[in-house]
Amino acid sequence: MKSIQELEEIRKRTLDTINVRKDRSGTRVVVGMATCGIAAGARPVLLAVIDEVKNNNLADVVVAQTGCIGMCRLEPILEVYKPGEEKVTYVKVTASKAKRIMNEHVILGKVVEEYTIGASEQ
């Protein structure tokens, strides 16, 4: 059974790593979390993104949520904003697609073309 006291220990441990995280302008990953997104499966997508951030220690990646952007039929939608680059919109994302996007695009900088909105509209 987990206890509240353990949280204090984790806090002390994480304090040491936190200073490294500040003042870096990193990548933003945004997941659509309105009714349409949630019904289409956005929750596991968001949590897969969080998992990848944790597993790969991506201290400079910010994960955010947004509402409906008006393309409900293409949900779950995930957007990647890299500093100095154009926004990339991924559509009909699943947890496994999100994992690949994180590894190939966010970490290695290579856009996963086949999952983008451009590819889906063709």
């Binding site: 987990k2 984790i10 806090r11 994480t14 969080i50 944790k54």
Partner: peptide, 25 residues
């Protein structure tokens, strides 16, 4: 509110290690 009181200002509740703890809790 209780968790944030323990964590103080330096450690965010959305820190991956904290989330892992919340998950198990």
């Amino acid at each position: 509110r209780q968790l944030k009181q323990i964590l103080g200002l330096e450690v965010s509740i959305s820190n991956p290690d904290i989330l892992a703890w919340i998950n198990e809790y």
